[in-house]
C-alpha cells in the first residue's frame, strides 16, 4: 500500500531526496518541486486501484537471459583520451577536493 507521506511535509521530503540525489536546491525552489511532486504522486496513486497479486514485474521488455562476454582483455581508452574531459587532473589522476576517509 501507499506509504503515508505527511503531505504537509512534502517540502521536507523534497529536501531529503534532493540531498540523496546530491542536488543542492536553493530554498526558494523547494515549494515548487514539492507541489509538482504532490501532483504527480496523486496521479500515480491510481495504480493502487489495481489488483496486482501474483503478477510478475516486467524489468525488461524482452525475455532474454544469459547474455555474456568472454573473459578476453581488449584495449580501452588511452589515458590522454580518458582524462581529456576531466575538469581537473594531475599525475594521471582525476582530481577531486580532498576526501576525508
Amino acid at each position: 500500500m501507499v506509504p503515508d507521506h505527511p503531505t504537509s511535509d512534502l517540502a521536507g521530503e523534497v529536501r531529503r531526496v534532493a540531498h540523496l540525489a546530491r542536488l543542492a536546491l536553493p530554498d526558494e525552489e523547494i515549494p515548487r518541486f514539492a507541489r509538482d511532486l504532490e501532483r504527480i504522486l496523486a496521479h500515480v496513486r491510481q495504480l493502487q486501484e489495481l489488483d496486482v497479486e501474483g503478477v510478475e514485474p516486467t524489468a525488461h521488455a524482452m525475455p532474454v537471459t544469459n547474455v555474456f562476454r568472454a573473459d578476453e582483455p581488449r584495449p580501452g581508452l588511452t589515458r590522454e583520451d580518458a582524462l581529456a574531459n576531466a575538469p581537473a587532473s594531475r599525475a594521471g589522476l582525476f582530481l577531486v577536493p580532498r576526501i576525508l576517509e
Binding site: A82, A88, S89, R90, A91, G92, L93, F94, L95, V96, P97, R98, I99, E101
Partner: peptide, 13 residues
Amino acid sequence: KNLHFEQASGVDF
C-alpha cells in the same frame, strides 16, 4: 582507488 594529496584527492579507475 582514491589517492590523497595535501590539498586534493586523485582517482585512479
